[in-house]
Write a protein that binds this DNA or RNA. Structure first.
Length: 465
RNA sequence: GGCGCGGUAGCAAAGUGGUAAUGCUGUGGACUGCAACUCCGCCAUCGUCGGUUCGAUUCCGACCCGCGCCUCCA
């Protein structure tokens, strides 16, 4: 069994070969904690969580790090707006992020490093970059400029290799003004000075704070090593974020490779439009969770290949919910069957995942396996159930009790489970009396309250629509 | 301007040089007191035009359409 992954760096799929099979390393860029996260943040979390699960079946130890950026100008702005401490803002939103991600059945990463816990490491890295001639400090005495440390992009030969852009091309189309203190327009900030009212840490270049890209380089170096196996994130991070991470880390390590495989997930659009602040169409995970189980969001994300763009819409979410209903329906009808232990690697779904995380095929296999289970009996059925659950577990799906799935709140519930049971009892009595008019009246009454009844030889089951 | 991505059934979404998985929806039937669930069946020739080939949705070229990035951004 071998894993193939698409590498943004080479623009091709390639066999995954860990640097050290005894310790595979995966790093994914996490959120900046200044707001509730939107569904776009959820995609990489779900995708790479699935990859993490997959890697765990292949290697004895996988170190998965996903950071929290807790110092950033956006957080500072939010804190100022709310009149709150920066740390309290970032802590609150980091917690909210963890809650949201857990609701999507994401496992906790092995390491969750915080930027502010790594200031000395960052300063150290900047010092090394300066010493090696890859960075320079602005020392012109000008207020607001003095104390910046910039990465000298021209000091690195392969700068731009990930995004495949030449410096000149980028600068030609640049839409931003170039700060006068930069030696070269493409140079980016490693460290910036903080005003008295801004958060800051003492450094060789005065009181200041880290630039955006620095934390990832420093934290990866500390927790994962100089060279890691896989680095992931959203496509928008390819440039400049990841390009700059590469620059920092490679130059700090005298040219040693930084990440062997670069993986980037596509964007999520909303009802056909790009999700953006100006369009006001951000979909916060938390808001969606008020209307849909987290598993539905996860199912939707896994229904598309991670590299393609994905369009979120109400129809898509509703249909995913119905698909899960079908799957849980099969499981509910086989509750009595004890799942037999099963080796996931012996499945089409597993092979699909090994092929650059082809989750759409893996999801489709879930449906095939469920039907297979449904049509089987005896030991074969037990095995089929075991396989279905094992494969689903790899994807973080179908792990809850089917009964709970159907009876759980689905938003706007107006009738309690007890009341439903009472009405069912009443209807069953009517049925026994051959009073079908009353029986149907009860059914319709429940239907209007969003409850569907399912009669079978074993009795009546119910579900919320 | 530079770099890059995509166009497959009503919707979503895989895939392959030899006539297209899967889910949702719709629809015909079975089951049911009626339903629901489930089961059986039906519903696409893969943006357009050329080329290569015995054969292309799959390779090549052109074109049309949609989209992303170019230092806030998953």
């Amino acid at each position: 069994m071998s894993l193939t992954l698409y590498n943004t760096m080479t623009r091709s799929k390639q066999l995954f070969q860990p640097i050290d099979p005894a310790r595979v390393t995966l790093y994914v860029c996490g959120p900046t904690a200044y707001n509730r996260v939107h569904i776009g943040n959820a995609r990489p979390a779900v995708i790479f969580d699935t990859l993490y699960r997959l890697l765990n079946t292949l290697y004895p130890k996988v170190v998965y790090a996903r950071n929290i950026t807790d110092i950033d100008d956006k957080i500072m702005a939010t804190a100022a707006e709310l009149g709150e401490e920066i740390s309290s803002v970032s802590q609150r939103y980091a917690e909210a992020y963890f809650d949201d991600m857990a609701a999507l059945n994401n496992l906790a990463p092995t390491v969750v490093p915080y930027a502010t816990d790594h200031i000395p490491e960052m300063i150290d890295m900047v010092s090394r970059l300066v010493a090696k001639g890859h960075a320079y400090a602005v020392d012109n005495g000008v207020e607001g400029e003095q104390g910046h440390v910039l990465f000298a992009v021209q000091s690195m030969r392969d700068y731009g290799s990930l995004s495949r852009r030449s410096l000149d091309d980028m600068l030609a189309g640049a839409r931003v003004e170039v700060a006068a203190y930069k030696k070269y327009a493409g140079d980016f900030v490693l460290w910036k000075p903080s005003a008295d009212h801004e958060p800051g840490w003492d450094s060789p270049w005065g009181r200041g704070r880290p630039g955006w890209h620095l934390e990832c380089s420093a934290m990866i170096e500390k927790h994962l090593g100089d060279s890691i196996d896989i680095h992931g994130g959203g496509q928008d991070l390819i440039f400049p974020h990841h390009e700059n991470e590469i620059a920092q880390s490679c130059c700090a390590h005298d040219g040693k490779p930084f990440a062997n495989v670069w993986m980037h997930n596509g964007f999520i659009n909303i009802e056909g439009e790009k999700m953006s602040k100006s369009l006001g169409n951000f979909r916060m995970v938390n808001d969606l969770l008020q209307q849909y189980p987290g598993e539905v969001l996860r199912y939707v994300i896994l229904s598309a290949h991670y590299r393609s763009e994905q369009n979120f819409s109400k129809d898509l979410l509703d249909s995913a919910w119905r698909s899960l209903d079908t799957l849980y329906g099969f499981l509910r009808s086989q509750t009595a069957v004890v799942a037999a232990p099963c080796d996931v690697s012996d499945s089409e779904a597993y092979r699909a995942l090994l092929d650059d995380l082809n989750t759409p095929v893996a999801v489709s296999e879930l449906h095939k396996l469920a039907r297979q289970m449904h049509g089987a009996s005896g030991a074969e059925q037990a095995l089929a159930k075991g396989r279905l659950l094992a494969v689903a577990h790899l994807m973080g799906l179908l792990q809850q009790d089917p009964e709970a799935w159907f009876k759980g709140a689905r938003g706007g519930d107006t009738i309690s489970a007890e009341e439903i049971e009472e009405l069912i009892a009443k209807r069953n009595q009517a049925k026994a009396d051959r009073d079908f008019q009353t029986a149907d009246a009860v059914r319709n009454q429940l239907k209007e309250l969003g409850v569907t009844l399912e009669d079978s030889r074993e009795g009546t089951q119910w579900r919320r629509d």
